[in-house]
């Protein structure tokens, strides 16, 4: 069994579903990912941050393809294979970017997708993981 470890620690958990570790300001409701110590909304009366997690489904706001390998600090297993990038509006009010598990031809603005944790690249025998999206099942 391959060892899995997040590509950057502290951003998500993969126990009982995918949980992105974020925060929300109780006063103005602004969601943050990754976690922030203080609210950044200039219209907010008082920063009151509470840790929370983001999970579940969202809709594709837009998407594109990395047809060529991005420069460092991007990492992937060789050889580079083009991948789809999506901007997704999660049901809980967060707009987030992530790689898609599926092919370009299957993409559509407005499509329903869900968060998954998947391998981004390997470091020795450890699979480094990140959050990605796949089409939401059953719809």
């Amino acid at each position: 069994m391959e060892n899995h470890s997040p590509c950057v620690p502290g951003l998500f958990e993969d126990q009982g579903g995918v949980h992105l570790l974020g925060a929300r300001c109780v006063t103005c409701g602004t969601p943050y990912f990754p976690r922030q110590a203080a609210c950044r909304n200039p219209h907010c009366g008082e920063s009151k941050m509470e840790d929370c997690s983001f999970s579940g489904r969202g809709t594709v706001w837009s998407y594109s393809v990395a047809d060529f390998s991005p420069p460092a600090p991007f990492k992937c297993d060789p050889p580079f294979k083009p991948y789809v990038i999506a901007v997704v509006d999660l049901e809980n009010g967060l707009r987030i970017v992530g790689q898609m598990m599926n092919e370009f031809e299957e993409m559509k603005v407005g499509a329903l997708v869900e968060l998954v944790i998947d391998t981004l690249y390997h470091e020795g025998d450890v699979a480094r993981t990140t959050w990605k999206f796949k089409p939401a099942g059953g719809h």
Partner: peptide, 21 residues
């Protein structure tokens, strides 16, 4: 760093999401 390591969005891909939208 997080944006490029965890996802990988080169400048052209940022523009491409806007063009697609």
């Amino acid at each position: 760093f997080l944006r490029q390591r965890c996802v990988g969005i080169p400048g052209p891909a940022f523009w491409a999401t806007l063009a697609r939208r």
